[in-house]
Structures are given as C-alpha cells and as structure tokens.
Simulated assay, not measured.
Amino acid sequence: MSDTVLVTGAASGMGRTVVERLAGAGWRVLALDRSAEALDALAAEVGPAVVPLVADVVDRAAVTAAVDGLVAGHRLTAVVNCAGIYPPTRLDDYSEDVYRRVFDVNVLGTLNVTAAAVPHLRAAGGGAVVNFASVDAFAVSPGQLLYSASKAAVLSITKSLAIELAPDAIVVNAVAPGWVDTPGNAATGRMAAAAATIPLGRVARPDEIAVWVQRLVEPGYVTGETVVIAGGAAMR
C-alpha cells in the first residue's frame, strides 16, 4: 500500500503544479479534474504516479464514487483542494448563475471533496487537508466581488473543519496565494500592473505556492491556519 494524495483542479494552473511537485516527491497522486483529455496528457507527461480521476467537484455522489474506487488498496493521507474559478464580478453585473457557479465550485466543491476523502483519511489513521483560499479573502480586489466572498468562506470552512476533524488526527489548513504566474492569470493581461503593487515587486512562481502545499500535506501540529503567500500584498 502506498500513500496517496488527492488533488483537485489537477489538469491546469496551480493544481497541475501541485501534482507535478507531489508526484516528484514520491506521492501517488489522484488527479481530479473534469477533462479526461487534459488528465491523460498530464499523466503521460508526469508518469505513472499520476492516476487520472474524472469528476466535477460540484457532484458529491460522483466524486465519492470515483474516490472510493481509486483509493482501494492504497492509503489516502492527504487532500489538496485546488479547483476554483474566478470570473470578474461587480454589484452592477453579477448574476445569480455566476454566483451559484462560483460558490458551487469554490465552496461546495471543497466540502464535497473533503467529505468524500475523510472516511479514507480516518481509515489511514489521520492525514491532512489543504484548501486553496486567496489573498482576496483578506484584501479584496476591485471587480472580484463573488470570488473574494467565496474565498473568505473557504477560510471559515478551513477553521471549522480543523476543529471538527481534530479528534481523527486530521489537520486542515489553507494557502492564500496572491498573483501567480499561471496561464489563467496571464490571460487577464493584468499581471504586470499587479506586480507593480506588490511589495516584493513581482508575482509568484507557481512552485513557490506548491512548496507550501507540500509542507502542509504532512500532518503536524499546525491546523486551522492559512498561509498567505502574496509577496506582502495583503499588507497594502
């Protein structure tokens, strides 16, 4: 039996970087995403440590069934909830559909995946959950009305689950990145302007976030905390 980590949003962005780092560190990685084609490409590139898991995080039954099927014969000891969306919204242009999608993916998805994984973490004798929040949960950005609110909810969920799961020796923490040099962020055309507002003068490299995720997937004495990785932007 080998130790396994479940990573959502695995086919792109920060999820992909986390998969690559953890697979390189010797983990068996259940890589969860909606795109079978993208997951197959990821597995072909990274190697046999990556096990594709096709599911939508908003579908709790599908996630549970998929996780149960692929964990069999292995120890699931960590979960990384990377899946998230960040469409720009303001009070004068948000819609109910966008609201529900943002909260379904960013908040409900985090709960669904964690709920599916916890029985396996308990069976392993404990483990770690790492949620992706955002610096926008602390220092909101213009035009990110719903995204900021959803990530503030992730912070609260992280604390609540840390208390709830502590008796099972499961720690729950979060990372809160600021601007990161991912394809999705680059497509906004705003990274250069954002970098000028960051005290360290640049956006983060993806692996600078992933290294903190790697530290947090190893259960320890830290739980209910959020590591802000934003180059000092949250202090502005």
Rank of each mutant, 00 (worst) to 15 (best):
S35Y: 12
A166M: 05
G143M: 01
G224C: 08
D181Q: 11
W27S: 09
R90E: 13
G84S: 06
A139S: 14
V50W: 00
D92C: 13
A195I: 10
P142D: 15
M1P: 11
A149Q: 05
E218P: 15
Y86P: 10
T17W: 13
A61Y: 00
A66C: 08
A210E: 09
V203R: 08
G201C: 11
L22A: 11
D207A: 10
F132L: 15
V51R: 05
G47D: 06
H120T: 01
V228T: 13
T188F: 00
A166K: 09
V19A: 02
L165Q: 01
P87G: 08
P142E: 10
G26N: 15
G127S: 07
L111H: 03
Q144P: 04
G143D: 02
E96I: 14
D136W: 11
V98F: 10
Y147T: 00
E164Q: 04
V113P: 04
A233R: 14
L146M: 04
A174C: 08
A38E: 15
P48Y: 12
A25H: 12
A128Y: 04
S156V: 08
A210P: 04
A196Q: 14
A117D: 04
A233S: 12
P87D: 14
L145Q: 00
S160A: 05
A61N: 02
N173V: 08
V98T: 13
V118C: 01
T158P: 00
T17D: 07
L161C: 01
A195M: 06
Y86L: 15
V51D: 05
A128P: 06
V54S: 07
H74S: 01
G73N: 03
P206Y: 02
A169Q: 11
S35F: 14
A137H: 07
V213G: 06
L53E: 04
T197A: 13
A162K: 05
T77C: 09
L121H: 00
G232E: 02
V63L: 03
V172Y: 00
A36F: 10
L111M: 05
G126R: 02
T226H: 13
A137R: 07
Q144T: 14
G26K: 12
R101Q: 12
V54K: 07
V211A: 14
A117F: 03
T8P: 15
A83N: 04
A66W: 02
R16N: 09
V217S: 08
V71S: 03
G84C: 07
A62T: 06
A61V: 03
E208R: 11
R60L: 08
D136C: 15
L216C: 13
T226G: 15
P119R: 02
P167A: 00
L121V: 02
A162W: 01
Y99A: 12
A38P: 12
L91R: 09
V63W: 01
S160Q: 04
T4L: 13
D59Y: 05
T17S: 14
P167N: 04
A162G: 05
V102H: 03
A233C: 14
P87I: 15
